[in-house]
Design a protein around this nucleic acid. Structure first.
Length: 494
RNA sequence: CGGGGUGUAGCGCAGCUUGGUUAGCGCACCUGGUUUGGGACCAGGGGGUCGCAGGUUCGAAUCCUGCUACCCCGACCA
């Protein structure tokens, strides 16, 4: 570790974020442009997210499957809007073999004789390959609904990348479902948005706004895109998950029809929905502080770390270790994820700082001084408050503390969002909020892309989502002063 | 793709303007000792084709040319 301190949010928010990712052992840059290595600590968070989400998907009737990484070009281009939307950020496989370079011994060149008949697109999303498969799986209304999810990696050749928030390759889940009716598909789209909202709230301790993307911001190939939007500590918006109602667009493009009960052939109705490793970036930006990561207990790879304070005296040290192991076993019986740090080469102060950086929710210190009174020291990461607790009942205290921390982090994030969300009717006030205070601005919009573009050019703020359609004829667009179509959230965004 | 910047030990950097024996510092690492209740200290030690290729020169990390990679700002985006 080169520097003791990480950058503060105040002086350089962006650098603070990078420092946390790198120094917090979540991920590292790799030798591939735009691609990151997810390190064990970061991957463990992803595994916890994955486990929780996977259960929620299964509880709502979905099953997992896996589809190929490569999409033949003719399938990729089948749904025109989808293809057009992703075309400019696709990695393409054109050859299948290398050979020794005759000019440069020890070097390899692409074998020109190994050119593929048809290029393969590395999936930026899997609708094409999946719907070309669904065609074979769906004949009857009895085959519906088809509720499938896949955990996968995808590649989008982004111009500028940022660890977790926008990488060229990322991990995600993508649900792809087929339904007999539009109503049922829309219901599914909204159900999965609710799943994401619940996951964000209960596991990530993250309040999110649910809403619908305006026409000009919806997913390429979708009829309607739903989104959850979170607020970061620099008061910007971040899209944390999306759920799309695809109508019959993909069914038509891939000719996926079923016979209904009346024997009539119909195209099926589709949805797709996904969240990615971007959630890890969102988690950091929402909760962490200048000391390091703050992880919600429900997603922390290790929830409690126990540090015995070693002395010269071996007998004392053995006693400390024994007490630490006892407490560990007590905590394990509550299904708490716990680690005992027996490393004697690091001093306590170093360990305290290190575990704060890594975001362990609770730290327990077992030292001879307190132990004489049968006490141990418990420190919570979110507030850094310290308590003395009876060793005997420490497991109960800690169990409760983990619950309190989970709630406190949520409450804090909610308060921050509330304090930084403003409802405005006047455009001057709108500009003032966006440019000087920052945050979410709730305002009315006339529904025109042109208006949204003007606002974006003048303030950098974009429409994050429509939270309500407007019926009230007295409500006017904050910019154009024409009759408003929607109540929306504006913000600068990641 | 436009504008700017940087490549010297695992990481962060100095040295380059004004070329000169053995390329230096901090952190990290290894060994030994003393320490241990908020990022320990002392002593010793290991680690470098100075981004790549060519040129100028008696001599290049340093000057010149070309290339390349990465970072930042913009356009684009989950």
């Amino acid at each position: 570790m080169s520097n003791k301190k990480i950058s503060s949010r105040e002086e350089d928010y962006s650098q603070w974020y990078n420092d946390l990712v790198i120094r917090g052992n979540l991920a590292d840059y790799s030798s591939v442009r735009g691609c990151m290595v997810i390190k064990p600590h970061g991957y463990a968070i992803w595994e916890n997210m994955k486990d929780a989400l996977d259960k929620m998907f299964k509880d709502t009737g979905h099953v997992n499957a896996y589809f190929p990484l490569f999409v033949p070009k003719h399938l990729f281009e089948a749904e025109e809007k989808n293809a057009e939307g992703f075309a400019k950020e696709c990695a393409v496989v054109t050859h299948y073999r290398l050979k020794n370079d005759p000019e440069n011994p020890g070097k390899l060149i692409v074998d020109p004789e190994a050119k593929l008949e048809e290029e393969l697109i590395v999936r930026p999303t899997s609708e094409a390959i999946i719907w070309s498969t669904y065609k074979n799986w769906i004949q009857s209304y009895r085959d519906l609904p088809l509720l499938i999810n896949q955990w996968a990696n995808v590649v989008r050749w982004e111009m500028r990348t940022r660890l977790f928030l926008r990488t060229a390759e990322f991990l995600w889940q993508e649900g792809h479902t087929a339904h007999a009716t539009a109503e049922e598909a829309i219901e599914e789209t909204e159900r999965m948005l609710d799943v994401y909202e619940t996951f964000a709230r209960e596991y990530m301790a993250l309040p999110v706004y649910k809403g619908v993307k305006p026409e000009h911001e919806k997913f390429a190939g979708a009829e309607k895109t739903y989104t959850i939007e979170a607020m970061t500590q620099d008061k910007q918006a971040i899209q944390a998950g999306t759920s799309h109602y695809l109508g019959q667009n993909f069914a038509k493009a891939f000719d996926v029809k079923f016979q209904n009960k009346e024997g009539v052939e119909e195209y099926v109705y589709a949805t797709s929905w996904g969240v990615s490793t971007r959630l890890i970036g969102t988690l950091i930006m929402a909760h962490s502080d200048d000391e390091g990561l703050i992880l919600p207990p429900k997603l922390a790879p290790i929830q409690v770390v126990i540090i015995p304070l070693f002395m010269k005296d071996a007998a004392v040290n053995n006693m400390l270790i024994e007490k630490a192991q006892e407490l560990k076993n007590q905590l394990l019986s509550h299904n708490i994820k716990v680690k005992v740090d027996l490393d004697e080469s690091k001093r306590p102060g170093f360990k305290f700082a290190e575990y704060e950086l890594l975001g362990m929710p609770v730290r327990v210190v077992i030292g001879p001084r307190d132990l004489e009174q049968g006490k141990i020291e418990i420190c919570r990461r979110d507030t850094k408050e310290k308590y003395l607790s009876d060793l005997m009942h420490a497991d109960l205290h800690i169990n409760q503390l983990l619950v309190d921390i989970q709630h406190n982090i949520y409450d804090k994030a909610l308060k921050f969002r509330t304090d930084n969300t403003f409802e405005v009717v006047d455009y001057e006030e709108f500009k003032d909020v966006i440019q000087h205070k920052g945050g979410f601005v709730i305002a009315y919009w006339d529904g025109l892309e042109e208006t949204a573009n003007k606002i974006k050019t003048e303030t950098k703020a974009t429409i994050r989502c429509i939270i309500q359609n407007n019926e009230d004829s007295s409500k006017l667009c904050v910019y154009s002063k024409n009759k408003a179509k929607h109540k929306v959230i504006f913000a600068e965004n990641y």
